[in-house]
Design a protein around this nucleic acid. Structure first.
Lengths: 339, 339
DNA sequence: CCTCTTTCGTGAATCGGTTCAGATAGGATG
DNA sequence: CATCCTATCTGAACCGATTCACGAAAGAGG
């Protein structure tokens, strides 16, 4: 424990003293420069410069009450989906010179709660949250305490809460419809367990497309539930598909990594894509377009998702806004029988 | 502008009033519960609960002076490299119940400066920065004002500043050495322009490995400078390689996306990998292992990079710490002539 | 020369906590 | 019973900004 030469941060009264004015005048130079004569203003600015004075945000906020900061909590900042959302949030807030405190909950409700509390302590204007749990009662209380809330990637179960989500039912329908349009009448779906909302919703979309096409889902659809939604899971899943009675001619994968694994499995088994097996993925990650056989995939407007959420938060109206974005199908070689 | 029913946040004196104690006692309940009799404590806690009281962080910080928050600025939060670094930072800070304010500068010095100022206003304990510019004078001033600084992905040019970086020279050397070990005597290097430090360093490493192997770099190395470090750039680059006189038998790509493009080009030109062209990438992104021909790649300890940076910041010693991590080669099928 | 406005500045109150010197009440000690 | 502790609680000062009522000085107008 040595004594570092840590000179105290200069405060507004240090500046006032050096410039030989009152603190009120310094504050005016900072916030309403036109109220101060040019001569005085220059002297004050000189002092600010000399002391490398940076106003204390805590003091300012304490007195002024407001703050131009918002919080965002996502499930995993390392996941490209959430990263893009975060970028959207950041880009929108940046326009209004707001700043973001970004955190990831790791799907841990306790961690989510900790960050929420921290944000509230710091008096953020609002929070954008991808809830870690189905139960969101703890979020409902926030608006009553003056903190805006926007749910991310989740429709609002109550009318008081704003939300921004992507229609996963539509995403599933889009993928299935496309495959049906290509003439496939038996489709495999490598999906996650239905207690993941996205998996359940996409399944619903797939079924609805099949029904709309006049087919019987029990016949036309082979859903395989994967334990892990990664490449290995996809590879294992596609082997089941290939071994199934009445082998499907198309496979819809719940995400691109799964699709990647599936295509690896198909290559190993020497099943040509798309002629003997069409493949559609979900998320349209960067590498989807770059594969040997470029991957057809459902793209979610992730950036706009975040952008819009921030937009709603900044608008801060008394009424809740609920937005549902529509996903988009990006068709590439993996699903189009060459004409 | 309607008048929302925005009741003011409860303050410590509201709690004191309700519990019929002084504000000092409430503060003690919050910070030194053992100083308060159980009976009083329960009454105060009851009042806190009833009012949903959350202490005002600004007020606390203003008085106490300290804060358990650190700032981090990366170039682009959507880039997996930085995301992993951010995760590392977050994981380390989380252990000490610190929180992170994460921001991306978009390589814009003005934006970086804005965030730095914001962090300073909020009185962060320190900042971890991937500098957007070569010039880092503005960062040098911060420690003098009591703000810790750790450079990320950049060695410190001055002894006063801590830094955490990965040895890119070693990374380049590792990749080249591996290819030389496999018997290749003419190697292509799809690189970025040398004013990007990483590109220059990796080139230096490649050259040193070639020299160490007793070869002449002018003969053994074909460096191609790509305008864009993405898949398209890689595909275009590999075509040049294939057309070169004395065609190389191995290609080292400055990142995995470039390598992906290169492999796409090789497939199109029907050049088998690795038998007629070995390929090595850099970064070891998720999909590298999942490709049809799994990609050999140089892995950087991104998570540890961030973790260690946070570690240094928290230690906060008077002396600067400079850490250089060594990258690691992950050998896969794309570079190993089957035994 | 005298009022009436403007223009500039001043200085104290205030935000909501933390902290610390001091008051009070029992309990222990001799 | 007097004295000294200890445990508990009080109340005011303080952190560093913003804000606002108010005063002083300088022009404007007659």
């Amino acid at each position: 424990m040595s004594t570092p030469v840590q000179r105290r941060r200069a405060s507004i009264s240090d500046v006032a003293k050096l410039a030989e004015v009152s603190v009120g005048t310094v504050s005016n130079v900072l916030n309403r420069p036109d109220r101060v004569s040019p001569h005085t203003r220059d002297r004050v600015l000189g002092a600010i410069d000399e002391l490398a004075f940076i106003p204390n945000g805590s003091a300012r906020q304490l007195r002024a009450g407001t703050i131009t900061t918002a919080g965002a909590i996502v499930l995993d900042i390392a996941n490209p989906f959430f990263t893009d959302v975060a970028r959207g949030i950041e880009d929108r807030l940046d326009q209004d010179s707001y700043t973001v405190m970004l955190a990831s909950s790791d799907e841990d409700p306790a961690r989510e709660a900790r960050y929420l509390r921290l944000f509230e302590e710091h008096g953020v204007q609002g929070v954008m949250v991808v809830p870690a749990t189905r139960d969101i009662d703890h979020l409902l209380a926030l608006p009553g305490r003056g903190i805006g809330v926007v749910l991310l990637d989740r429709t609002s179960p109550v009318p008081e809460l704003s939300s921004v989500a992507v229609d996963d039912v539509a995403g599933g329908r889009l993928a299935a419809q496309h495959l049906l349009d290509q003439g496939h009448v038996r489709i495999a779906f490598l999906n996650g367990p239905h207690d993941i909302r996205q998996a359940a919703d996409r399944h619903e979309g797939v079924v609805s497309a099949i029904v709309a096409a006049g087919l019987d889902p029990d016949e036309a659809l082979l859903e395989i539930t994967l334990p892990a939604l990664n490449a290995d899971g996809g590879e294992r899943g596609i082997l089941q598909v290939l071994g199934a009675r009445d082998r499907p001619t198309a496979t819809f994968c719940v995400n691109d990594l799964t699709a990647l694994g599936a295509m690896r499995g198909l290559r190993r088994e020497q099943v040509p894509v798309p002629t003997e097996m069409a493949v559609v993925g979900y998320d349209d990650v960067t590498f989807a377009a770059e594969l040997a056989t470029p991957l057809t995939s459902v793209r979610q407007p992730t950036h706009r998702l975040g952008y819009r959420a921030a937009d709603i938060l900044l608008a801060g109206g008394d009424t809740a806004t609920n937005v549902v974005f529509q996903p988009e199908l990006v068709v590439r070689a993996s699903s189009t029988s060459r004409a």
